[in-house]
């Protein structure tokens, strides 16, 4: 049984993560990861067949910073923007080490185009390793596994 105070810290981190993406605050998104953090977004089809190819693979903190650069500098002005709304529900939490937790959460992300139409962008499950430190909780690794194997159009923002 994981302590309620720990779960509160973990849920606060997930809320912060959703908030930064939905508000497109990319620097704050990168700050959700600890200094050794990694972010991977991969199709379930690959995950289940031990195929490592991902849709986004930021396997070190420099890559996470580079994803911020993609979104805020490199792709600027070439895509029709869209807004996202993340909905996340924790379904499992296990303690791996005194300050390290394995957390699994379902997610759905809706997106709305500039024409004002909303549809489902992706659905799936997060498998996260979360560390608790003096500064609060942070992602050691975040793995977004997409049930939505065929994603619509393009994915500018991480999920």
């Amino acid at each position: 049984m994981v302590d309620a105070a720990v779960l509160t810290q973990i849920d606060d981190l997930q809320s912060r993560y959703m908030r930064t993406l939905d508000r497109r605050a990319m620097d704050d998104w990168a700050a959700c990861f600890d200094g050794q953090g990694s972010y991977v977004c991969i199709a379930r089809e690959n995950e289940e067949q031990d195929l490592a190819l991902a849709i986004m693979m930021d396997d070190n903190s420099e890559r996470i910073r580079d994803r911020v650069t993609y979104v805020t500098k490199i792709w600027v002005g070439v895509f029709e923007d869209y807004t996202t709304r993340h909905f996340v529900q924790r379904i499992e939490c296990r303690q791996l080490q005194p300050a390290l937790f394995l957390v699994e959460s379902n997610f759905m992300v809706a997106y709305t185009t500039s024409r004002g139409r909303s549809e489902m962008l992706v659905a799936g499950v997060y498998k996260d390793e979360i560390v608790l430190g003096e500064g609060g909780a942070a992602f050691r690794s975040k793995r977004a596994i997409l049930d939505t194997t065929v994603t619509p159009r393009y994915l500018v923002y991480p999920v």
């Binding site: 190819l53 849709i55 986004m56 693979m57 070439v78 895509f79 393009y154 994915l155 500018v156």
Partner: peptide, 25 residues
């Protein structure tokens, strides 16, 4: 090759996202 494929191409690719973003237009 896994790292490069996962980051250069596809719906969120460093060098390819813009194509997907222009097709619908």
């Amino acid at each position: 090759r896994i790292r490069q494929g996962s980051n250069l191409q596809g719906p969120s690719g460093f060098i390819s996202l813009e194509d997907g973003a222009v097709f619908n237009r």
